[in-house]
């Protein structure tokens, strides 16, 4: 193993990665701002977004975008192989294509589910009685996504499973600490009550940050 490779693997935040992250952050910020402005203009969401709504909307857009990008990459086997292994000579296998598409579907469905309660605000303002129908739709999507998640788990190898378990464990460890402090402060009357929507938005944001961090550490970049 070369010294350069060792240095690169011990410090995943190389200048190249930092530049790509900065560009991604700027483009993401502009796209996100434009998207929210568009939603507000369309009166799909309340004029004043709460902080948890803003987080949920951001997560929803990120997940749907990631799902779309992954499914687009899976259309070209050579491209997919190079994403998985730079300099790959063999095209991606059937299994790799299927796994990528499963991941894409899981991500996109998670994004759609996360965004639906917000997107539905516009419909609910006109037809308030549609809430149970919208919720039933979310339940169907949830069942479908759970089934896809199980298929993904069963088709994953030991490395992917170790990654998933580490992400879940780290998210729980950090999340339970944060939510304990919030719950204690709430019980002592120091802060206002926090809704389950607030907590879930924070938990998903934490999950994404942990996933991103661990992927960066464990990946080849």
């Amino acid at each position: 193993m070369s010294a350069a490779h060792t240095a690169s693997s011990s410090n995943p935040l190389t200048p190249n990665v930092l530049v790509r992250m900065a560009i991604g952050a700027i483009v993401g910020g502009i796209v996100g701002f434009g998207f929210v402005e568009l939603l507000i203009h369309m009166r799909v969401t309340p004029r004043q977004l709460g902080w948890s709504d803003a987080i949920a909307l951001w997560i929803s857009v990120v997940l749907i975008a990631l799902g779309l990008v992954a499914s687009l990459v899976s259309l070209n086997r050579s491209r997919l192989a190079k994403e998985l292994e730079p300099g790959a000579t063999l095209p991606a296998s059937e299994e790799e294509v299927l796994n990528t598409r499963l991941q894409a579907a899981v991500l996109a469905l998670a994004g759609i589910m996360m965004g639906t309660p917000l997107f539905a605000q516009g419909i609910l303002a006109i037809h308030p009685r549609t809430a149970p129908i919208i919720f039933a739709g979310i339940c169907i999507l949830f069942a479908l996504q759970t089934w896809l998640n199980l298929r993904l788990w069963r088709s994953s190898d030991e490395f992917a499973r170790a990654m998933i378990l580490t992400i879940c464990a780290l998210t729980f460890a950090i999340g339970q600490g944060i939510f304990f402090l919030v719950a204690a402060a709430e019980r002592l009357g120091l802060i206002h009550s926090v809704s389950s929507w607030n907590i879930y938005s924070l938990l998903m944001a934490l999950y994404l940050v942990v996933s991103f961090y661990l992927s960066l550490r464990k990946s080849r970049c």
Partner: peptide
């Protein structure tokens, strides 16, 4: 290639890369 080795061992290319770069310790079975 990493892909070829992964195929022979029945794991993903990412798993081979992670083991080579010492970011993942393989199971006893692997």
């Amino acid at each position: 290639s990493q892909g070829e080795l992964a195929l022979k061992l029945g794991v993903s290319r990412q798993a081979i890369n992670a083991i080579e770069t010492e970011k993942h310790d393989p199971s006893l079975d692997l």
